[in-house]
Computed example of a mutant assay.
Amino acid sequence: MFNEFKRAFTENKRAIYIAIVILIVSMVLGYFFEPYLYKYLNPVVEDLTQKVQSGVVKLTFADIFLNNFKIICEMFILGLLFCFSAVILSFNGFFVGYYVAFSGNLFEVLLYIIPHGIFELSSCALACASGFVLFNFLYKFLKALLIQEDGSFKNKLANSFDSSYDKLKQACILFVTSVILLIIAGFVEAYLTIPIAEFVIGVLG
Rank of each mutant, 00 (worst) to 15 (best):
A127T: 08
A127L: 10
A127F: 02
C128R: 04
C128L: 13
C128E: 08
C128W: 04
A129S: 13
S130H: 06
G131W: 02
F132T: 07
F132S: 06
F132G: 03
V133E: 11
V133G: 05
V133C: 07
L134K: 02
L134I: 08
L134G: 04
N136T: 12
N136H: 01
N136Y: 04
N136R: 06
F137G: 01
F137H: 04
F137C: 04
F137K: 01
F137P: 02
F137S: 01
L138H: 04
L138E: 05
L138T: 12
Y139M: 13
Y139W: 12
Y139H: 11
Y139I: 14
K140Y: 08
K140E: 13
F141H: 02
F141V: 09
F141L: 14
F141I: 09
L142V: 14
L142N: 09
K143N: 09
K143R: 05
A144V: 11
A144D: 15
L145Y: 13
L145D: 07
L145S: 08
L146G: 13
L146E: 13
I147W: 11
I147Y: 10
I147D: 13
I147S: 14
I147P: 07
I147L: 15
Q148F: 06
E149W: 03
E149G: 15
D150F: 11
D150Y: 12
G151S: 12
G151T: 09
S152K: 12
K154Q: 12
K154E: 14
N155A: 03
N155V: 00
N155H: 03
N155D: 13
K156N: 09
K156L: 06
L157V: 15
L157T: 09
L157M: 14
A158C: 00
N159H: 07
F161D: 06
F161S: 05
F161E: 07
F161C: 06
F161A: 09
D162T: 12
D162W: 01
S163P: 12
S163G: 09
S164Q: 06
S164E: 03
S164R: 02
S164Y: 01
Y165L: 14
K167Y: 11
K167D: 15
K167A: 10
K167W: 10
K167N: 13
L168W: 05
K169S: 12
K169F: 07
K169A: 11
Q170C: 10
Q170N: 14
Q170V: 11
Q170R: 12
C172D: 08
C172Y: 08
C172L: 15
I173C: 08
I173S: 05
I173P: 05
L174G: 04
L174K: 03
L174P: 03
L174Y: 03
F175K: 01
F175D: 04
F175A: 07
V176M: 03
V176G: 01
V176K: 00
V176T: 06
T177Q: 01
T177F: 08
S178N: 04
S178L: 04
V179L: 13
V179W: 04
I180G: 06
I180A: 13
I180Q: 03
I180P: 05
L181T: 06
L181C: 07
L181A: 08
L181V: 07
L182Q: 10
L182R: 03
L182W: 03
L182I: 11
L182S: 05
L182E: 06
I183N: 02
I184L: 03
I184H: 00
I184S: 00
I184D: 00
A185I: 07
A185L: 02
